[in-house]
Amino acid sequence: MYLNVQEKDPAFLYETPLLHQSFFWSQVKQTQGYETKAFDMKARVKDLKQETSSAFLLDDLLVQLVPVSRDQTIGYVPYGPVLSPLEDRMGVFLEELSMNLRDRLPDHCILLRYDLPWKNVWEEDDLSLELQNLRLNWGTSTKALRRSVSNQLPSDTMLIDLTPTEDEILERMHPKTRYNIRLALRKGIQVRKVGHDHLLTFYELYKETCERNHIQLHDLSFFEALFGPEDESASVTLLMAFLDKTPLSAMFLSRSAHRATYLYGASSSALRNSMSTYALQWSAIQLAKSWNCSEYDLFGVSPTQSKDHPMSGLHSFKKGFGGNMLHRMGCWDFAFKQEEANLLFAYEMVEEGYHLR
């Protein structure tokens, strides 16, 4: 397989609907203390697709270097690469890409972790972890690809088509969701765009949410980093829902190319019958349409409606807005230093996850 990889300045990353592969996100991560690198990729169409074309495909890639010990890092690729081969060439492509990147990453990088944005090609097969590893490694020479212990970004989400009119979008929602949106507005919920001066208010709501749902808490500095970056093709807006002057719910809504994404959300444990979260989502949809976005990513649900999943409540809430499910491939690792990588995998098996035990 022919694949040419060249490093470049992250400022020259291509416009993309995936915020986490944008120059904006590179700046966020740098502000949070991480080193980022960007790479151009050039591949032959016939190597990735079932075509005889002599043409080439061009794309790029953002890699974040994440410390995992005092002197070791992993190269984390958030929702990348976007360039997607046919199923029987996925593993070969990732292997070739990894081998190209190895010489362009620091020696302390022990593995690459791809958080693949690709549609899960096995979602109907219900494959075991062992079979998934075998399938992705088919045709590779190293057999080094391995399903990660857990996903970093949501692998299951819902996308709402924003091309219809607002009335048509409302019509596609569940009747109860439409009712709750209108109920919230009747109760006097007002949603406003707010700035950095409301970050502490958001954070108080966020702490309530984490405690209520038993999820890990980010530091305030994590959200502070969202306010600094400048990128013509991507941005983040803080929306907040109020009843009179009381803030009840809030979200960071991102825009990247033609896609808006519900990035982070929070809500109060008080006055939940105000349905402020429904008004908040409806305002996000309206704002995304005003940005000429064609789709809205609700960013993270349980893979099914099973009540046993810790995100089952989110699944029911978000499903009501009329989106379509997307199951992604999730995180896959390619180890450069197998012994060090095995130690990391063992640690990750017992590490606390996003949902606290």
Rank of each mutant, 00 (worst) to 15 (best):
L127D: 04
L127S: 02
L127W: 05
L129F: 07
L129E: 14
L134V: 09
L136Q: 08
N137H: 02
W138S: 15
S141D: 11
K143S: 12
A144W: 00
L145F: 05
L145P: 09
R146T: 15
R146H: 15
R147M: 10
V149H: 06
Q152M: 06
S155Q: 10
S155L: 02
S155A: 14
D156S: 12
M158W: 01
L159E: 02
L159T: 02
I160V: 14
D161T: 05
T163H: 01
T163P: 01
T165Q: 08
T165Y: 03
T165C: 01
T165I: 04
E166I: 04
D167P: 00
D167R: 02
D167I: 01
E171F: 10
R172W: 02
M173R: 05
H174R: 12
T177N: 07
T177L: 06
I181V: 14
I181S: 04
L183D: 09
L183V: 13
A184S: 14
L185S: 13
R186L: 03
K187Q: 11
K187H: 12
K193T: 11
K193P: 03
V194W: 13
H196A: 08
H196K: 15
H198I: 00
L200C: 07
F202S: 08
E204T: 10
Y206V: 01
Y206W: 03
Y206Q: 02
K207A: 09
